[in-house]
Design a protein around this nucleic acid. Structure first.
Lengths: 337, 337
DNA sequence: CTTCTTTTTGTAAGCGCTTCCATAATAAAT
DNA sequence: ATTTATTATGGAAGCGCTTACAAAAAGAAG
């Protein structure tokens, strides 16, 4: 690896001069600068990120916390898309991303998330898809490291959230306009997201004057086709079954579909269903899923923009909550009544 | 941040001694060591990864190259699972992973993959889901950085591959045993993986004495439901249509299913289909997909094991190709004839 | 031709850590 | 008591880089 020292020797100048030339400092002669830059390029010089970081305390590296209940945010449709978008956006700004974890890196036995951040010197952290009540997450959020969270709001922290309230309202209104009056909602496990959707569901139902028997609101874990299917079965057996069922997410819908078809019912002729998320596969099945597509691209992009801004201009960056609107996908699983 | 210097002062010893105590060197007094370690812990000491790396040339950080045609390996079922497994495995061994990319990090304008590796000082690199003919990828593979590749074999490099030959053979044999004699295969775009599967398909067909009209072997891009659906339509219109269609992957199957159902045909009564991969959703639809599940967990795990071994014991690590067997998922989309 | 500015280059310290080598302290052997 | 072997600790250099400050060179002004 060729270092600044090698270049300084090749150019007959001091290392300081090389550093200045390469970093475009003002106090350096024009032709000296160009000569140094040319020779550096010829010699295939590359800065050493570690040395630079050691001196400047800037790593141009962002930590990403990305663990879900099943310990795998990566295989989670929604979050992997957010991450993908986030990754592109920060890379365009010259940052790399590395995953945050608890297992001690570098031979250390164990580290908390915060310790991991300090150890690696992350310039900032993006947190998503996680148990936000984990003490270690709280510790991280309360630290002095720049943080943006996705889908969960903390005091005094930038947060990017999908518009669950608006999304749910639009979805329910759409179904209502299709003529449905008996709408059931199988919501996911408790979380900010679930609460937002559930509250919006109740409010919209109220607004529309729907009567909502308590049996119509059920819970099932996110992305659990088995439970979704089972609860679907129970809903279908009610004396007054719903005409439309909302699921925690698109994936869960497949559990519902299986149960529904196994009883010889047709979608949407006999019963309507709708998901939430807008995962890719939902658009590619025979009867495309009615759902609310969350704008994962914007979510990731905005998270990146805000985080980088917070890192580079801590003083002037507004601490705010950014809400990203979704889009209704009519699909074909909600029929007219 | 508390440094070794702080500890050395607090303990009244030299920095060298602190370093030795913390790194468990032999040449240090027992009680001194324990005292230093205790105080270090009390003071909340954390090593500084950059400083350490600068000195030792070891970052405990692994680069991951993970870009597909659509530029997003992350949202690719198969690869995100491999990555997830890889991530867990290397983390258990004290390594972090960060994504490799071309956009210059740290304010640099542009970098090749190899330059990126040098810049960040990755201890090793895992390459998957990528155009293996990209000159930059070749440059990286030919460099002196420890590399393992997934699903593509290079000379003198460790490679972990899914057993496409065996997998395809098992799949075809299964279908044959169900009584099918007219089997079509829509294969994916050209790549090592495609070649292995295609060759195995031909060979197995030969072995089983199947006649294979050339119209039965078609191409469609991976994970493209539209094209898969279209080709399916064309296959169904042949004078002698196949009784079973193999798809490039599970995702593509959904395109086929849509076309098949739109023509009023039933699966598997009228036509059978099979995918490849074993993605999660395939098991959760009404008629579970017959497919060959690739063992993404082992793939990722083995890639991690081998790479870390190569990093830590370069001399004694065997340069070999590791082939990971998949598993046949009978599902219900291939019927008896 | 001084003196004062302005511009350009160099010196040196230090970021936090590891490691070679020297020195000091202790124990063992003669 | 003296030499030798053993163990414990410290000094110092240096990894590659940035940056405050000093110094030198060049130009402007008196």
């Amino acid at each position: 690896m060729v270092s600044m020292k090698d270049i300084s020797i090749a150019c007959g100048v001091s290392v300081a001069t090389v550093s200045k030339a390469l970093n475009d400092h003002g106090d350096i002669g024009k032709e000296t600068k160009e000569r140094i830059r040319r020779i550096a390029k010829e010699m295939g010089y590359l800065p050493n990120a570690m040395a630079r970081a050691l001196k400047t305390n800037r790593t141009y590296n962002i930590g990403v916390l990305f663990v879900d209940e099943a310990q795998s945010g990566l295989t989670h449709d929604y979050f992997s898309q957010v991450l993908d978008s986030f990754k592109r956006a920060v890379e365009a700004k010259g940052y790399d991303i590395t995953f945050l974890n608890k297992g001690g890196a570098g031979g250390l036995s164990q580290m908390s998330y915060l310790e991991h951040c300090h150890y690696r010197g992350f310039d900032g952290v993006m947190i998503a898809c996680v148990d936000f009540y984990d003490p270690q997450v709280l510790e991280l959020v309360r630290s002095d490291i720049p943080v943006v969270t996705v889908d969960h709001l903390f005091d005094n922290r930038i947060n990017i959230t999908s518009d669950n309230v608006g999304g749910m309202e639009r979805l329910v209104r759409y179904i209502y306009e299709k003529g449905h009056r008996r709408i059931a909602y199988i919501h996911g496990a408790d979380s900010s997201v679930t609460q937002a959707r559930l509250t919006s569901f109740y409010r919209t139902a109220e607004l529309l004057g729907l009567k909502l028997p308590s049996e119509y609101v059920r819970e099932a874990p996110y992305r659990d086709t088995g439970m979704a299917g089972q609860v679907t079965g129970e809903l279908l057996e009610l004396k007054k079954p719903p005409t439309c069922i909302l699921y925690p997410d698109d994936f869960s819908c497949f559990g519902g579909i299986t149960t529904i078809k196994s009883r010889g019912l047709r979608i949407p002729e006999d019963i309507s269903i709708a998901g939430y998320d807008g995962i890719r596969i939902g658009r590619h099945i025979e009867t495309p899923l009615t759902t609310l597509r969350q704008d994962t691209t914007s979510l990731g992009f905005q998270a990146a923009e805000k985080l980088v801004s917070l890192i580079e201009h801590p003083k002037t960056t507004l601490i705010e909550q950014v809400v990203i609107k979704g889009e209704l996908y009519p699909g074909k699983t909600v029929g007219d009544i």
